[in-house]
Nucleic acid binder design. Structure first.
Length: 744
DNA sequence: CGGTAGAATATTTTT
DNA sequence: TATTCTACCG
């Protein structure tokens, strides 16, 4: 946990309620723990594992899967506090991805990979797809690489491999209809290229594990015997493959315990399927269900407000979350003119609170999208308040780090084409597009890795000029030199790499502030590797690569006294006394895309539910009437979610001089052409919904006259009302076009 | 082949 | 606005 406000509070009450005790002690057979926010979920899981160990179960027979490395670490620490011996290190505990990577490395040969495979991050995957699309001569807009990647990922996570895709008439027909008939070719090529490069992407870590178990019953049985007790945290966020693997490994002993909260499922974009949770009871027989409904974290007002919001969702497990804490302050709702004003005012509220002796680390500002952090950052900087932004570009995603790592990856797995292409001409050594294309063509033709082409006699078949050939050969020599250090300690490897490749020298030649920062980052990587090399075991380069590919959280022992800024997704599992949720506007939160479909709108609602329930003492919600987005100012509309919260638990702060700003907007002469069109467009988009309508209301329409609303339907993203008109009978109206007034 | 300037493009969330 | 891509010139 990253807060230092009263650490004593953090160890929570030692007494357990009866439901919690039940969930800890009943460890036999399938069970599902439905744990509302703040209900002591982590405590229950850790106590349950400790209970297993205390009752004589071997730690190495326990599998505990989490979603984030942070959660895994936290859990390990807390179990350690309870049992306080080395057993805790024998538990198979980690993220799905890291545990499966471990298994796959051991069993790689069975699947036709070698154990030194490297892992592609999303960036690598998208780049590879972009190249495939180009090679196929396809339109890069229709076959947008990010979209294609998302689709491939979705298919993989739903266990539809390219062979099955090809044979699925419906999917193919759908692609043809949408003029994306080549999708399947890209999908296939992508999979083949990854395989040939001896690389796995994030999704492969899951589907290959599933395949391993499915095709090799003896291997499955081996792991079934190891994993006698299986625990899954955040089960509501598992996708189809993950769920399938859980079912595979727990089939024999059936001691599977899933923990989660359907109301906090916020990762469906990654294939998470809330149905895994909803269907758990029908898949397993004799499931014991535990409900943790008491929220120990938040005030009654916060819990009640959150409940009233989530009540608008249809798909959920019945439960009643309640708090016995003090009633607390109402939720504050602020309306501001602009996003900048919103930023300034929210920060000044925090400033005031700090003046009343709260700590910076007690405050967290949450937003829907990372780009919203900027105005807040400016305001914090202006007041000199220390803050930390979580997320954004992680250390290992920075260009200079990826460049450096590409050399290291190549040392481990010289089939890794992505890594090779990244550095074949970086730092620039005179190997340009033309040459690279020739090399790639040959590698395609011979069905060999790029490295095999340039490091063998095949290089003579490329018809390169002698000058270019020399350059390529010196690159080969450079990499070969690096290969020779493969078994050395990682610190030596990184030092040699930097020295031989001139990575840093190149940056030093052009000491712009950015480059100096890059050099510092590389320095930090060197330090990290130095520390890593001092580990007693598992300190080889392959371990390093593997670990950082799957765990991007970098340890930092910095000061922890700061205001936290993060997306709501990142705030999951955390808690803060004061929570500020900014930008509650339609098309931002809920996001534009989600407003089209009911199920994704429900997910956005859960997202706000998660945000609100992070708070211990006080929640402040805000929205701006005008927001600077996509390079220009646009008029916004407050989020439909605001009115869904029961007004009993909300206190609104009225906005002053609201008119002035808007008038300025429209009076400004230059706004006329382009910008005005833009504003009209946005406001058209945003006015698809009206939340002041109710069934039974009387309206008067400009053509049909008086009528009564019989039904409201937003299922296809367009709000439609069915109205019975006295003179014209039943009519279906689109509210975004219809001209009418409510009369009672 | 390399560098750069100006154009095009994208803005949801992440292991 | 911020980042990435493209086209062109040296």
């Amino acid at each position: 946990m990253n807060h230092n406000w009263n650490p004593l509070n953090n160890s929570k009450k030692i007494t357990l309620n009866p439901q919690q005790l039940d969930a800890i002690q009943n460890t036999i057979g399938p069970s599902m723990i439905i744990a509302g926010p703040g209900s002591g979920k982590t405590k229950v899981i850790t106590e349950r594992i400790a209970h297993l160990i205390k009752s004589g179960i071997n730690a190495e027979n326990i599998l505990a899967l989490t979603f984030t490395n942070k959660a895994a670490k936290e859990m390990r620490n807390r179990i350690n506090q309870i049992i306080n011996n080395n057993d805790v290190f024998s538990i198979w505990m980690g993220t799905f991805h890291s545990i499966f990577a471990k298994i796959l490395r051991k069993e790689a040969s069975t699947l036709g990979y070698s154990e030194n495979f490297t892992i592609y991050d999303n960036d690598d995957s998208v780049k590879l797809i972009r190249r495939i699309v180009k090679d196929f001569n396809l339109d890069k807009d229709i076959y947008n690489s990010k979209y294609i990647f998302a689709k491939i990922s979705f298919m993989k996570n739903n266990l539809i491999n390219y062979r099955e895709y090809k044979n699925n008439a419906e999917l193919i027909k759908e692609d043809n209809l949408r003029k994306r008939s080549h999708f399947i070719n890209i999908y296939q090529k992508y999979c083949e290229t990854c395989k040939q490069s001896n690389c796995l992407d994030f999704d492969d870590l899951l589907i290959k594990t599933h395949e391993l178990f499915r095709k090799n019953s003896h291997i499955l049985e081996y792991y079934q015997n190891i994993f006698q007790y299986v625990l899954i945290d955040e089960y509501q966020d598992t996708n189809k493959v993950q769920d399938a693997i859980v079912k595979q490994v727990s089939k024999k002993h059936q001691n599977v315990c899933v923990v989660g909260d359907d109301s906090q499922s916020i990762y469906s974009f990654r294939g998470a399927n809330i149905n895994n949770m909803l269907n758990f009871k029908s898949f397993y027989q004799n499931v014991t269900e535990f409900k943790l409904e008491q929220n120990y974290r938040s005030t009654q007002n916060i819990v009640n407000a959150a409940n009233s919001l989530i009540a608008n969702n249809q798909k959920k497990i019945q439960k009643t979350i309640f708090s016995k804490n003090e009633e607390g302050e109402k939720i504050q709702l602020h309306t501001y003119n602009t996003d900048r004003e919103e930023g300034d005012r929210i920060i000044s509220i925090i400033q005031n609170s700090l003046n009343q002796n709260t700590l910076k680390s007690e405050h967290a500002i949450l937003y829907r999208t990372n780009s919203q952090s900027k105005v807040l950052e400016d305001a914090l900087r202006k007041r000199g308040i220390k803050y930390k932004i979580f997320g954004g570009l992680s250390f290992y995603q920075r260009k200079e780090i990826k460049d450096t790592m590409a050399f290291l990856k190549l040392i481990i797995n010289n089939y890794d084409n992505e890594a090779l292409l990244r550095i074949i001409n970086y730092p620039t050594r005179g190997i340009g597009h033309t040459t690279i294309n020739k090399i790639r063509q040959k590698s395609e033709e011979k069905n060999m890795s790029i490295w095999s082409v340039i490091s063998s006699n095949l290089i003579d078949e490329l018809k390169l000029t002698s000058g270019t050939k020399t350059k390529v050969l010196s690159f080969v020599k450079l990499i070969n030199t690096l290969f020779s250090y493969k078994q050395e300690n990682v610190f030596k490897i990184i030092e040699k790499t930097i020295d031989i490749t001139g990575l840093v020298r190149r940056l030093e030649d052009d000491p712009t502030p950015e480059n100096i920062n890059r050099i510092e980052n590389i320095g930090e990587l060197v330090n990290t590797m130095k520390l890593f090399s001092l580990r007693p075991k598992n300190n080889q380069l392959i371990h390093f690569i593997n670990e950082i590919s799957l765990d991007e959280t970098k340890e930092d022992n910095e000061e922890t006294e700061y205001v936290s800024l993060m997306t709501i997704h990142q705030s999951k599992g955390l808690e803060y006394p004061y929570i500020y949720v900014v930008g509650l506007e339609n098309n931002l939160f809920p996001s534009q895309k989600s407003m089209q479909q009911r199920f994704s709108l429900e997910e956005e609602r859960r997202l706000l539910y998660v945000a609100i329930t992070r708070a211990i003492k006080k929640v402040t919600l805000s929205h701006a009437l005008n927001r600077f987005r996509f390079g220009s100012m646009g008029i916004t509309e407050k989020s439909i979610f605001i009115d869904e919260i029961n007004p009993l638990f909300i206190e609104s702060k009225k906005l002053q001089n609201r008119q002035t700003y808007q008038n300025k907007q429209f009076k400004a002469p230059r706004l006329h052409n382009k910008i005005l069109r833009k504003i009209n467009k946005t406001s058209q988009n945003t006015q698809q919904y009206r939340n002041d309508l109710q069934v039974g209301q009387k309206i008067i329409h400009n053509v049909f006259g008086k009528g009564e609303i019989k039904n409201i339907d937003i299922s296809d993203g367009n709000q439609k009302i069915q109205v019975y008109f006295e003179q014209h009978g039943d009519k279906l109206l689109l509210t975004k076009f219809a001209k009418f007034k409510i009369i009672m």
